[in-house]
Design a protein around this nucleic acid. Sequence first.
DNA 1: TTATTATATCGCAATATTATAATTAATAGA
DNA 2: TCTATTAATTATAATATTGCGATATAATAA
Lengths: 110, 110
Amino acid sequence: MGVTKIQNYTEEHNEIAILGKAFSHPARVAIIMHLLKAKACINGHLVEELGLAQATVSQHLRELKSIGVIQGTVEGTSVSYCINPEIWNVLKTRFEEIFNQFEDPADLCC
Amino acid sequence: MGVTKIQNYTEEHNEIAILGKAFSHPARVAIIMHLLKAKACINGHLVEELGLAQATVSQHLRELKSIGVIQGTVEGTSVSYCINPEIWNVLKTRFEEIFNQFEDPADLCC
DNA sequence: TTATTATATCGCAATATTATAATTAATAGA
DNA sequence: TCTATTAATTATAATATTGCGATATAATAA
């Protein structure tokens, strides 16, 4: 039915899934990685950078902003975006916790 | 138009987005986290665990398998699933690389 | 062979996502 | 004020995803 049954899942699982969405589309990955390099927090350049329509990029930015992983401030007619440090650290911690939970079994598990 | 324009993005961005998809749905997060705990690689239990139809769980398992993050082996009439160590390490490395690329700016960036 | 158990696949309905053009809003500068 | 610039929003179209029932498949047990 196309509707994710969020009530079936724990808060934790839903929260991680939301964070994971930031990395589940190449455009969003590209935006994040660009913001990581260009700490100077550019915008609009992203449209050229990605080769997508302005509206499309704007939508991805909106989603990333709603996840919380980026933030933007108006500077005249343009908007400057950058990584949101707090959420980034939450994200980093959450995922590293998961990554480290795996111990390579000496014998193949299955 | 609903089609991700993968040709616009670098190999790297597409690859990360595919890996990111493993974590972009609560059911898949739940499956992964269950497999991390129950190293013993159970299956079928997942259906009860998640409260989803067997067909739905099977589909998520299929997607996780196609991403590579889990693997399954037939054991009699049932199938045992577990984390795929190689892909897990690739995933871990890739994402930690990204996570560590961020340096918290002393002055707010934007 | 037949029954049982477990999982995969198919096909569908409903919703979500991706992408764009067109429009709107807000600001800067002439 | 008028105009150019920039980005957000809206409307629209097309594809993808999610979830499930029904069915198919595979392996073992009786």
